[in-house]
Protein backbone atom coordinates (compact mmCIF):
# COMPACT_ATOMS: atom_id res chain seq x y z
CA UNK A 1 0.00 0.00 0.00
CA UNK A 2 1.22 3.45 -0.83
CA UNK A 3 2.02 5.33 2.38
CA UNK A 4 0.99 8.70 0.97
CA UNK A 5 -2.30 7.47 -0.39
CA UNK A 6 -3.38 6.29 3.05
CA UNK A 7 -2.14 9.40 4.85
CA UNK A 8 -5.31 11.46 4.39
CA UNK A 9 -7.71 9.02 6.11
CA UNK A 10 -5.29 8.81 9.04
CA UNK A 11 -5.09 12.60 9.37
CA UNK A 12 -8.88 12.82 9.26
CA UNK A 13 -9.16 10.14 11.95
CA UNK A 14 -6.75 12.03 14.23
CA UNK A 15 -8.62 15.29 13.58
CA UNK A 16 -11.94 13.68 14.54
CA UNK A 17 -10.43 12.23 17.72
CA UNK A 18 -8.97 15.64 18.53
CA UNK A 19 -12.53 17.06 18.50
CA UNK A 20 -13.76 14.74 21.27
CA UNK A 21 -12.97 17.17 24.13
CA UNK A 22 -15.20 19.77 22.40
CA UNK A 23 -18.14 17.67 23.54
CA UNK A 24 -17.36 18.69 27.11
CA UNK A 25 -18.54 15.28 28.31
CA UNK A 26 -16.09 13.82 30.83
CA UNK A 27 -17.38 10.34 30.10
CA UNK A 28 -16.40 10.49 26.43
CA UNK A 29 -13.12 12.25 27.06
CA UNK A 30 -12.08 9.56 29.50
CA UNK A 31 -13.23 6.61 27.44
CA UNK A 32 -11.61 7.83 24.23
CA UNK A 33 -8.51 8.61 26.25
CA UNK A 34 -8.51 5.01 27.44
CA UNK A 35 -8.87 3.76 23.88
CA UNK A 36 -5.86 5.87 22.83
CA UNK A 37 -3.86 4.33 25.66
CA UNK A 38 -4.88 0.86 24.51
CA UNK A 39 -3.93 1.84 20.95
CA UNK A 40 -0.37 2.58 22.12
CA UNK A 41 -0.38 -0.74 23.97
CA UNK A 42 -1.62 -2.60 20.88
CA UNK A 43 0.97 -0.97 18.61
CA UNK A 44 3.74 -1.95 21.02
CA UNK A 45 2.58 -5.57 20.90
CA UNK A 46 2.21 -5.46 17.13
CA UNK A 47 5.93 -4.69 16.89
CA UNK A 48 6.48 -8.17 18.33
CA UNK A 49 3.55 -10.17 16.95
CA UNK A 50 3.00 -8.56 13.58
CA UNK A 51 6.48 -7.45 12.58
CA UNK A 52 8.95 -9.74 14.35
CA UNK A 53 6.77 -12.86 14.55
CA UNK A 54 7.03 -13.16 18.34
CA UNK A 55 3.62 -13.99 19.82
CA UNK A 56 3.95 -12.69 23.36
CA UNK A 57 1.15 -13.73 25.68
CA UNK A 58 2.48 -11.75 28.61
CA UNK A 59 2.58 -8.21 27.32
CA UNK A 60 0.36 -6.90 30.14
CA UNK A 61 3.33 -7.34 32.50
CA UNK A 62 5.13 -4.30 31.02
CA UNK A 63 1.93 -2.27 31.00
CA UNK A 64 1.34 -3.07 34.67
CA UNK A 65 4.92 -2.60 35.83
CA UNK A 66 5.00 0.98 34.54
CA UNK A 67 1.51 1.64 35.94
CA UNK A 68 2.58 0.47 39.39
CA UNK A 69 5.84 2.39 39.04
CA UNK A 70 3.91 5.67 38.81
CA UNK A 71 1.88 4.83 41.90
CA UNK A 72 4.91 3.68 43.87
CA UNK A 73 7.23 6.50 42.80
CA UNK A 74 4.74 9.30 43.47
CA UNK A 75 4.91 10.89 46.94
CA UNK A 76 1.75 10.39 48.97
CA UNK A 77 0.81 14.06 49.51
CA UNK A 78 2.53 15.71 46.62
CA UNK A 79 2.73 15.48 42.85
CA UNK A 80 5.74 13.80 41.27
CA UNK A 81 7.46 15.45 38.31
CA UNK A 82 6.22 14.08 35.01
CA UNK A 83 9.71 14.45 33.57
CA UNK A 84 11.12 12.13 36.21
CA UNK A 85 8.36 9.63 36.73
CA UNK A 86 7.53 9.06 33.05
CA UNK A 87 11.08 8.12 31.98
CA UNK A 88 11.51 6.10 35.18
CA UNK A 89 8.32 4.08 34.63
CA UNK A 90 9.15 3.43 30.98
CA UNK A 91 12.73 2.50 31.88
CA UNK A 92 11.54 0.01 34.49
CA UNK A 93 9.29 -1.70 31.97
CA UNK A 94 12.11 -1.72 29.42
CA UNK A 95 14.47 -3.22 31.99
CA UNK A 96 11.95 -5.91 32.91
CA UNK A 97 11.42 -6.71 29.21
CA UNK A 98 15.18 -6.84 28.62
CA UNK A 99 15.79 -9.28 31.49
CA UNK A 100 12.75 -11.43 30.70
CA UNK A 101 13.68 -11.30 27.01
CA UNK A 102 17.09 -12.81 27.78
CA UNK A 103 15.24 -15.94 28.90
CA UNK A 104 12.11 -16.17 26.77
CA UNK A 105 13.79 -15.40 23.45
CA UNK A 106 15.70 -18.66 23.71
CA UNK A 107 12.41 -20.45 23.09
CA UNK A 108 10.23 -20.58 19.99
CA UNK A 109 6.62 -21.09 18.99
CA UNK A 110 4.26 -22.48 21.61
CA UNK A 111 7.04 -22.49 24.22
CA UNK A 112 7.58 -18.78 23.70
CA UNK A 113 3.87 -18.15 24.23
CA UNK A 114 3.94 -20.19 27.44
CA UNK A 115 7.06 -18.68 28.99
CA UNK A 116 6.00 -15.11 28.25
CA UNK A 117 2.74 -15.98 30.02
CA UNK A 118 4.64 -17.55 32.92
CA UNK A 119 6.79 -14.46 33.45
CA UNK A 120 3.73 -12.21 33.29
CA UNK A 121 2.00 -14.35 35.91
CA UNK A 122 5.08 -14.00 38.12
CA UNK A 123 4.88 -10.22 37.77
CA UNK A 124 1.14 -10.42 38.54
CA UNK A 125 1.75 -12.28 41.78
CA UNK A 126 4.49 -9.89 42.85
CA UNK A 127 1.96 -7.05 42.85
CA UNK A 128 -0.96 -9.20 44.01
CA UNK A 129 0.62 -11.10 46.88
CA UNK A 130 3.50 -9.06 48.25
CA UNK A 131 3.29 -5.96 50.47
CA UNK A 132 4.80 -3.96 47.59
CA UNK A 133 1.61 -3.69 45.54
CA UNK A 134 -1.17 -3.32 48.08
CA UNK A 135 -2.84 -6.63 47.34
CA UNK A 136 -5.83 -7.26 45.13
CA UNK A 137 -7.31 -3.81 45.83
CA UNK A 138 -4.37 -2.17 44.17
CA UNK A 139 -3.18 1.36 44.88
CA UNK A 140 -4.35 4.90 44.39
CA UNK A 141 -2.34 7.54 42.64
CA UNK A 142 -3.31 10.44 44.86
CA UNK A 143 -1.68 13.16 42.81
CA UNK A 144 -1.21 13.11 39.06
CA UNK A 145 2.33 13.99 38.00
CA UNK A 146 3.10 17.65 37.43
CA UNK A 147 4.51 18.82 34.11
CA UNK A 148 6.17 21.86 35.71
CA UNK A 149 9.64 22.77 34.49
CA UNK A 150 11.30 25.15 37.01
CA UNK A 151 7.93 26.53 38.03
CA UNK A 152 6.60 26.91 34.47
CA UNK A 153 3.74 24.51 33.74
CA UNK A 154 3.10 24.03 30.01
CA UNK A 155 0.06 21.83 30.68
CA UNK A 156 -1.73 20.21 33.61
CA UNK A 157 -2.42 16.50 33.70
CA UNK A 158 -5.08 17.15 36.36
CA UNK A 159 -7.02 18.91 33.61
CA UNK A 160 -8.91 16.21 31.71
CA UNK A 161 -8.67 18.04 28.39
CA UNK A 162 -4.93 18.64 28.74
CA UNK A 163 -4.45 14.99 29.70
CA UNK A 164 -6.49 13.88 26.70
CA UNK A 165 -4.33 15.84 24.28
CA UNK A 166 -1.19 14.65 26.01
CA UNK A 167 -2.29 11.04 25.46
CA UNK A 168 -3.29 11.77 21.86
CA UNK A 169 0.11 13.36 21.20
CA UNK A 170 1.84 10.33 22.70
CA UNK A 171 -0.16 7.97 20.50
CA UNK A 172 0.70 9.91 17.35
CA UNK A 173 4.38 10.03 18.39
CA UNK A 174 4.47 6.28 19.02
CA UNK A 175 2.87 5.67 15.63
CA UNK A 176 5.37 7.90 13.84
CA UNK A 177 8.27 6.42 15.79
CA UNK A 178 7.32 2.83 14.93
CA UNK A 179 6.50 3.67 11.30
CA UNK A 180 9.96 5.18 10.94
CA UNK A 181 11.60 2.34 12.85
CA UNK A 182 10.13 -0.23 10.49
CA UNK A 183 11.70 1.55 7.50
CA UNK A 184 15.13 1.48 9.13
CA UNK A 185 17.70 -1.28 8.62
CA UNK A 186 16.76 -2.53 12.11
CA UNK A 187 13.10 -2.74 11.17
CA UNK A 188 13.82 -4.56 7.91
CA UNK A 189 15.78 -7.18 9.85
CA UNK A 190 12.80 -7.69 12.19
CA UNK A 191 10.52 -8.29 9.23
CA UNK A 192 13.10 -10.68 7.79
CA UNK A 193 13.19 -12.57 11.10
CA UNK A 194 9.42 -12.89 11.04
CA UNK A 195 9.56 -14.26 7.52
CA UNK A 196 12.44 -16.70 8.01
CA UNK A 197 14.72 -16.43 11.03
CA UNK A 198 16.92 -19.34 10.02
CA UNK A 199 17.66 -17.67 6.69
CA UNK A 200 18.55 -14.43 8.46
CA UNK A 201 21.07 -16.33 10.56
CA UNK A 202 22.64 -17.94 7.55
CA UNK A 203 22.93 -14.45 6.02
CA UNK A 204 25.06 -13.54 9.04
CA UNK A 205 22.54 -11.81 11.29
CA UNK A 206 22.80 -12.37 15.03
CA UNK A 207 19.04 -12.53 15.28
CA UNK A 208 18.90 -12.87 19.07
CA UNK A 209 20.18 -9.32 19.49
CA UNK A 210 17.57 -7.91 17.16
CA UNK A 211 14.79 -9.84 18.86
CA UNK A 212 15.99 -8.68 22.27
CA UNK A 213 16.05 -5.11 21.00
CA UNK A 214 12.49 -5.42 19.71
CA UNK A 215 11.30 -7.10 22.90
CA UNK A 216 12.82 -4.38 25.06
CA UNK A 217 11.41 -1.62 22.90
CA UNK A 218 7.95 -3.21 22.91
CA UNK A 219 8.18 -3.47 26.71
CA UNK A 220 9.13 0.21 26.96
CA UNK A 221 6.22 1.32 24.75
CA UNK A 222 3.84 -1.00 26.59
CA UNK A 223 5.13 0.70 29.73
CA UNK A 224 4.34 4.11 28.26
CA UNK A 225 0.75 2.92 27.77
CA UNK A 226 0.64 1.62 31.35
CA UNK A 227 1.97 4.93 32.66
CA UNK A 228 -0.75 6.87 30.81
CA UNK A 229 -3.40 4.45 32.04
CA UNK A 230 -2.39 4.97 35.68
CA UNK A 231 -2.37 8.76 35.24
CA UNK A 232 -5.74 8.70 33.47
CA UNK A 233 -7.60 6.61 36.05
CA UNK A 234 -5.64 7.46 39.19
CA UNK A 235 -5.44 3.92 40.45
CA UNK A 236 -3.78 0.62 39.57
CA UNK A 237 -4.76 -2.96 40.34
CA UNK A 238 -2.99 -6.28 39.79
CA UNK A 239 -5.60 -7.05 37.13
CA UNK A 240 -3.67 -4.73 34.79
CA UNK A 241 -1.01 -7.46 34.64
CA UNK A 242 -3.38 -10.40 34.41
CA UNK A 243 -3.39 -12.78 31.49
CA UNK A 244 -6.84 -11.46 30.54
CA UNK A 245 -5.22 -8.15 29.69
CA UNK A 246 -2.44 -9.88 27.75
CA UNK A 247 -5.15 -11.72 25.85
CA UNK A 248 -7.21 -8.59 25.23
CA UNK A 249 -4.33 -6.68 23.69
CA UNK A 250 -3.50 -9.68 21.53
CA UNK A 251 -7.12 -9.70 20.34
CA UNK A 252 -6.87 -6.00 19.49
CA UNK A 253 -3.86 -6.72 17.31
CA UNK A 254 -5.59 -9.67 15.62
CA UNK A 255 -8.81 -7.71 15.19
CA UNK A 256 -6.95 -4.82 13.59
CA UNK A 257 -4.75 -6.97 11.38
CA UNK A 258 -1.30 -8.11 12.45
CA UNK A 259 1.66 -6.25 11.03
CA UNK A 260 -0.16 -2.97 10.46
CA UNK A 261 0.24 -0.09 12.91
CA UNK A 262 -2.93 1.72 11.89
CA UNK A 263 -4.66 -1.65 12.15
CA UNK A 264 -3.53 -2.01 15.77
CA UNK A 265 -5.04 1.40 16.53
CA UNK A 266 -8.25 0.46 14.75
CA UNK A 267 -8.28 -2.85 16.61
CA UNK A 268 -8.03 -1.07 19.96
CA UNK A 269 -10.93 1.21 19.00
CA UNK A 270 -13.08 -1.67 17.76
CA UNK A 271 -12.36 -3.79 20.81
CA UNK A 272 -13.18 -1.10 23.35
CA UNK A 273 -16.23 0.05 21.40
CA UNK A 274 -17.58 -3.50 21.27
CA UNK A 275 -16.92 -3.93 24.96
CA UNK A 276 -18.98 -0.81 25.74
CA UNK A 277 -21.79 -1.54 23.33
CA UNK A 278 -22.16 -5.25 24.11
CA UNK A 279 -21.93 -4.65 27.86
CA UNK A 280 -24.85 -2.23 27.48
CA UNK A 281 -26.92 -4.84 25.70
CA UNK A 282 -26.26 -7.89 27.83
CA UNK A 283 -24.24 -9.10 30.75
CA UNK A 284 -23.10 -11.96 28.50
CA UNK A 285 -21.23 -9.44 26.39
CA UNK A 286 -18.14 -11.65 26.17
CA UNK A 287 -20.19 -14.17 24.22
CA UNK A 288 -20.99 -11.55 21.59
CA UNK A 289 -17.42 -10.33 21.58
CA UNK A 290 -16.13 -13.86 21.06
CA UNK A 291 -18.47 -14.37 18.12
CA UNK A 292 -17.28 -11.19 16.43
CA UNK A 293 -13.64 -12.17 16.87
CA UNK A 294 -14.28 -15.62 15.41
CA UNK A 295 -16.06 -13.98 12.48
CA UNK A 296 -13.18 -11.55 11.86
CA UNK A 297 -10.60 -14.33 11.93
CA UNK A 298 -12.66 -16.44 9.52
CA UNK A 299 -13.86 -13.81 7.09
CA UNK A 300 -11.32 -10.98 7.40
CA UNK A 301 -7.91 -12.66 7.67
CA UNK A 302 -6.20 -9.28 7.26
CA UNK A 303 -8.27 -7.79 10.08
CA UNK A 304 -9.70 -4.30 9.92
CA UNK A 305 -6.54 -3.07 8.22
CA UNK A 306 -7.41 -5.24 5.24
CA UNK A 307 -10.85 -3.70 4.77
CA UNK A 308 -9.90 -0.60 2.71
CA UNK A 309 -7.98 -2.78 0.27
CA UNK A 310 -10.94 -5.15 -0.05
CA UNK A 311 -13.35 -2.32 -0.75
CA UNK A 312 -11.00 -0.85 -3.32
CA UNK A 313 -10.63 -4.16 -5.10
CA UNK A 314 -14.36 -4.80 -4.98
CA UNK A 315 -14.96 -1.41 -6.62
CA UNK A 316 -12.37 -2.15 -9.27
CA UNK A 317 -13.94 -5.56 -9.84
CA UNK A 318 -10.76 -7.43 -8.96
CA UNK A 319 -10.63 -10.81 -7.35
CA UNK A 320 -11.26 -10.56 -3.60
CA UNK A 321 -8.56 -12.93 -2.51
CA UNK A 322 -5.66 -11.46 -4.36
Amino acid sequence: MNAHASLLPKLIAVAIIACVPLSGESFYIEIVGKVLVMAIFAMSLDLLVGFTGLVSFGHAAYFGIAAYAVALLSPQYDAASLWVVLPAAVALSALAAFVIGLFVLRTKGIYFIMVTLAFAQMAYFIFHDTPLGGGSDGMYLNNKPSAAIFGWEPFELTNEVHLFYFILAMMVLVYLFLARLLQSPFGRVLVGIKSNEHRMQSLGYFTFRYKLGAFTLAGALGGLAGFLYAVLFGFVTPELLSWHESGNVLLMVILGGMGNLAGAVAGAFAFEAMREIFADITKYWQLLMGSVIVAVVLFLPGGLAGVPGRIKRALQGGRPNE
Binding site: R180, Q183, S184, P185, G187, R188, V189, Y210, G213
Partner: peptide, 23 residues
Protein backbone atom coordinates in the same frame (compact mmCIF):
# COMPACT_ATOMS: atom_id res chain seq x y z
CA UNK B 1 16.18 -6.02 -4.76
CA UNK B 2 15.05 -6.05 -1.11
CA UNK B 3 16.02 -9.71 -0.67
CA UNK B 4 19.55 -9.00 -1.84
CA UNK B 5 19.74 -5.61 -0.12
CA UNK B 6 18.91 -7.29 3.18
CA UNK B 7 21.70 -9.78 2.54
CA UNK B 8 24.13 -6.92 1.81
CA UNK B 9 23.04 -5.04 4.93
CA UNK B 10 24.25 -7.98 7.04
CA UNK B 11 27.84 -6.85 6.36
CA UNK B 12 27.34 -3.54 8.16
CA UNK B 13 25.00 -4.17 11.01
CA UNK B 14 24.14 -1.00 12.89
CA UNK B 15 20.99 -1.93 14.78
CA UNK B 16 21.10 1.23 16.85
CA UNK B 17 20.51 3.38 13.77
CA UNK B 18 16.76 3.16 13.93
CA UNK B 19 16.00 6.48 12.28
CA UNK B 20 17.83 6.07 8.99
CA UNK B 21 15.91 4.64 6.07
CA UNK B 22 17.04 1.21 4.95
CA UNK B 23 16.20 1.90 1.32
Amino acid sequence: LENVRLAAQSRRQQPWRIFSKAM
